[in-house]
Simulated assay, not measured.
Amino acid sequence: MQVEQKGLFKYSGIDIFSGAGGMSCGAMAAGVSIDLAVEFDKHSANTFKKNHPNTLVIQDDISNINPKKYITTPPFVVFGGPPCQGFSKSNTKTRDIGNDNNNLFREFIRFVDELQPQWFVFENVEGFQSFNKGKTLKSLELTFKGLKYTTSHKVLCASSFGVPQRRKRFFMVGNRDGIKFEFPKETSTEITVKDAFHDLPKLINGQQDSALPYISKPQSQYAKLMRGATKESTQNLVSRNRDYVVERYAHIPQGGNWRSIPNHMLDNYANLDNCHGSIYRRLNLDEPSVIISNYRKNMLIHPEQDRGLSVREAARLQSFPDSYVFEGNLVSIQQQIGNAVPPLLAKEIFSQLISASK
């Protein structure tokens, strides 16, 4: 997959709330140049700059930015995913209109209103469509209708588009020329964890190697695609878990979770009934991964080795190519990967935008 701008692109894009650049990575693979990216987090912005050196990256609060200062003609597409904590189904404490993060999607509207792109792509968590009993979604549709955009929306699962992860995301796509966007068709073949991991090096708990040889040639088309021209596996960085945590891992079979751990080994939990099913989940080699949103905190386990996932393994599950380099400390990198839109999923959407524009 292409991650660096080379030559001229016919289509121009603006990425706001860009994070580490998952959507931009997919957009570029589809043929969209990224002229401007806006990201508040320093480490994420540095990752974006590292992998997209020809893009103007602004690291600032988006409310401080006048887009017309940098973009003088309407772009092909404005896209991005405002922070989603306020809409997530897993957020049981502040999932309400008062959550400050929920107001950031109004900044997305402002950029679309001021730049008047041909298309926009708004991305968020699956729970966005049901938030506030669907009233927020309806309000967003009416707002864009007032701006003369025809909209379509759908929840897509990444595993249906060549990504080895069952990750669902909400997308709203709008067009200024009256085109009703049709979302890309799902594929029938799922990519498994084995397809993603088979050639990556074996690691141990807490291992920190910047580069290691691949252990085999690509044995799946997916691994071949992820490797591209990359000669070795980079950022083989694994969090160091305490010994008692690693001992718990040994009790969990593929596809299992914390329930497989003997109760006497979980005596630090006050109430096991409150444990979420995603905690201590060991991935199944023969299936796509579960969602990896916060894979360090949830302690997702390698399918065959008693340790957490490495940075490169998590990036593979998100469909970031092996050439993609993440900046910042380990915790920040893990969060950047977990927050990202899978590039292969994004590529399908942007490819469909281009097809609909011809």
Rank of each mutant, 00 (worst) to 15 (best):
A346F: 01
K297Q: 12
S233W: 03
S90N: 05
P288Q: 13
S310E: 07
Y214T: 07
D267K: 11
K185W: 10
G178I: 05
G277A: 05
H276F: 00
D209V: 09
G134N: 03
M299F: 14
A20E: 01
N91P: 06
V238T: 09
Y269S: 13
I16T: 02
F197L: 14
V163M: 02
P342S: 03
R95D: 12
T47D: 04
F111H: 04
I14Q: 00
D60H: 00
P213K: 03
K154Y: 08
S216C: 14
Y222C: 10
P75Q: 02
N298K: 15
R106W: 08
K89A: 12
F128V: 03
S44M: 05
V121G: 10
A250S: 15
E186H: 12
V311T: 10
I261Q: 02
L309Y: 13
D96H: 15
I97G: 08
V245W: 11
I71E: 02
Y269P: 08
G178K: 07
G178P: 06
Q254A: 04
K50Q: 05
R307E: 07
I279S: 15
P75K: 02
S260W: 12
N103Q: 11
Y222T: 03
P82G: 06
G127P: 09
L36Y: 01
H198V: 11
Y11F: 13
N101L: 13
L56F: 02
S351K: 10
F170S: 05
D177Y: 15
T234G: 06
K68A: 06
V78M: 03
V155P: 05
F128Y: 10
Q118C: 12
N132E: 11
V290L: 11
F350E: 06
Q219S: 14
D100A: 15
T143S: 06
T55Q: 04
A250V: 10
C275D: 15
Q334W: 01
G26E: 03
I301H: 04
E304T: 15
K202R: 14
R242F: 11
Q336S: 09
V112P: 04
K93N: 11
Q2G: 11
H251Q: 13
S332W: 01
F48G: 05
A315E: 03
R110H: 10
N64C: 06
F17G: 01
T189F: 14
H43R: 09
G86S: 01
V155Y: 08
Q335H: 06
Q129Y: 15
